[in-house]
Simulated scan of single mutants.
Amino acid sequence: MYSVNEFQRIYQKILPYIRITPLLESQHLSRHIQGHVLVKAESLQITGAFKLRGALHRLMSLPSSVKTKGIIAYSSGNFAAGLAAAGQITNIPVTIVMPADAPKVKLSNARYYGAKVIECKSSFPSREEAACNMARALSKQSGGQLLHPFDDIELSKGQATVGLEICQQIEQQKRAMTDWLLCPFGGGSLATGCAMVVSALSVPVRVCSIEPESYNGMELSINAKKIQRAQGNMATSCDALMARSPGSSLFPVAMSTGIKGISVSERYIATAITLAFDELKLILEPSGAIGIAALLQYPELFKEQSVTLIASGGNVDQNTYQQCLAMPVP
């Protein structure tokens, strides 16, 4: 469906503005699953998360008539900063609606990179949907282009460069290709992008989406073979993974690649943050550590296999981080 050349062109286009993030080996996790584990440290990306990749490609692809009117978007945090930075690079004005209860570090990041941030205090029917409704109204008023934070194929193609970069690094390090690629899943732009690129590369890699257990819309949808809505009835520390359903335009693409999906509990997410700090010296937000949590919770699922997981972000408030560091590593 998608060609390797297309993803390589996108990668070369955004490469001058992003970091090539390291691929780190985790001896602790490798022993835990009796296999081999690599961690892609996208928490070290500019803006502290992978989102800049997709945002850059999306803005660079816009027609000139749209660029002059500016962009309207909504986000709980990391996409906001990524889009703001992309707007700064491309000289496109960006306005972002963010939930008022988003982590302060994420609100600050979006403003730091030049976006106009409007805080949405409503949480009905959910904080994301309330922010979406406000952004849609602003788009109608201003004439600015409304961008979805994840349900956008072009955006997902930009996020696919994470997967492309991983495959290139594995080859450069003369390692055997990984069996699994674990992707944090909010709405699906990262996981779908990675699934598209490994399919285009024809490498035997199984992509697996990882979600918090109460926001497991993708896991439910995969099992039902149609889009389902998670209950979202329990609190989660993963503020970046609180979409209740996968994106409607991304879901069929992801399903066509044979993507898998699992969900993890809060206990393992907190422990994963401590492990990342202790062993890899990475500061991860809960959403960024969820791939590590999956290996801690389900070692038998990945036993004696090679796994690469994406540590997708590191934008975390100090209080949340300190609470997570108090959790012991098994």
Rank of each mutant, 00 (worst) to 15 (best):
K281Q: 12
A240K: 09
Q172R: 09
M177V: 12
P204L: 03
I269M: 05
M255I: 11
Q231L: 14
L280V: 05
C183W: 05
Q228C: 15
G186M: 11
A191W: 01
I170G: 00
L309I: 02
Q231M: 15
I292D: 12
G188W: 05
L190Q: 07
Q228R: 14
S312H: 12
C183E: 02
A191L: 04
P204W: 02
L284Y: 13
Q172N: 03
G247R: 13
A235I: 13
R175P: 02
A289W: 09
E304I: 00
D179V: 02
G187K: 09
A289L: 07
T308S: 07
A272V: 07
L296P: 00
S202Y: 03
A272Y: 03
S306V: 00
A276Q: 08
K303G: 01
Q305H: 14
P299I: 01
I283H: 00
S189G: 14
L201Q: 02
P299G: 05
L309P: 02
R229G: 06
D179G: 04
E266L: 03
V198T: 15
P299A: 04
G193T: 06
F277M: 06
C194R: 00
G291M: 06
Q172V: 04
I283E: 00
D278H: 11
T236Y: 14
P212Q: 12
E304D: 14
K174D: 08
G247L: 10
K174L: 08
T192M: 07
L201F: 02
C183L: 04
L182R: 06
A224G: 13
T308Q: 03
E266P: 03
L282K: 06
A240P: 13
V307K: 06
G188H: 03
F185E: 12
L201D: 03
M196E: 03
V205G: 10
C238D: 10
L250G: 04
Q228A: 09
G188K: 08
L220F: 05
T178G: 04
G232F: 11
M177C: 13
E219A: 13
Q169K: 07
S214I: 06
I262H: 11
Q168V: 00
A294G: 03
S249C: 10
L250Y: 01
L275C: 05
F251C: 09
M234W: 11
